[in-house]
């Protein structure tokens, strides 16, 4: 562990490029699902715009990053632009679902990445909200009469409230005994 040092900001352009490459691969992969639909092949060959646009975004982001742009701004702009590109020509239901998926993955990232235990709870709330959007979108577009989706959202709200109360109480109890809420320090059960 002697070699490990703390630096302010690592050289992460390679990392970022890899990320964009993976994102582009993801867009390509998303076509894999289309391939099995009847008009899938024509769609891939006629609608190239989102693939090329995402690739262009990746390139632009990489260039701006290597010139020295602010990381948060680039990430935000890229996420937003790719979200708009991916949803603009979709039906309304699919837009809501894509937004929910994006929010869910952001919550997932926060949950895994955060070191503060309260921020983990906060990310879980984000994920639950994404699920709620999914349920309400389906109840609006698929089942607007019986509204079963909205019913389930009521239960999700209840469970989320209970979860937040108990989770925060656990965090407070841990803080009282360990004087920290850093997730990396809770290693009592690690072997």
């Amino acid at each position: 562990m002697q070699n490990v040092v703390t630096v302010k900001e690592p050289q992460s352009s390679v990392n970022l490029a890899l990320g964009y490459a993976l994102f582009a691969a993801a867009v390509v992969g998303s076509y894999a699902g289309v391939l099995f639909t009847p008009t899938g092949i024509e769609r891939i060959f006629t609608n190239h715009y989102d693939f090329w646009a995402c690739l262009g975004l990746a390139l632009a982001g990489w260039i701006v990053r290597s010139v020295g742009g602010h990381k948060g701004v680039i990430v935000t702009m890229t996420v937003l632009a790719s979200f708009i590109i991916l949803t603009l020509h979709q039906p309304m239901l699919l837009r809501y679902l894509t937004f929910a998926a994006l929010l869910f993955s952001m919550g997932l990232y926060g949950m895994v990445q955060s070191r503060n235990a309260v921020r983990v709870l906060l990310s879980i709330e984000l994920m639950l909200n994404a699920v709620n959007i999914n349920l309400i979108a389906f109840s609006r577009y698929v089942d607007p009469v019986a509204l079963k989706g909205q019913l389930f959202v009521i239960f999700v709200l209840t469970v989320a409230a209970a979860e937040a109360a108990v989770g925060l109480a656990v965090v407070l109890a841990i803080y009282r005994s360990r004087q920290t809420v850093d997730m990396d320090k809770f290693t009592l059960l690690k072997w």
């Binding site: 990320g19 993976l22 994102f23 993801a26 992969g29 998303s30 894999a32 699902g33 991916l86 894509t98 998926a101 994006l102 869910f104 993955s105 952001m106 997932l108 990232y109 895994v112």
Partner: peptide, 10 residues
């Protein structure tokens, strides 16, 4: 998280 988004979207 990127993979989860990609899976969901596809």
């Amino acid at each position: 998280s990127v993979l989860s988004f990609v899976t969901l979207y596809s």
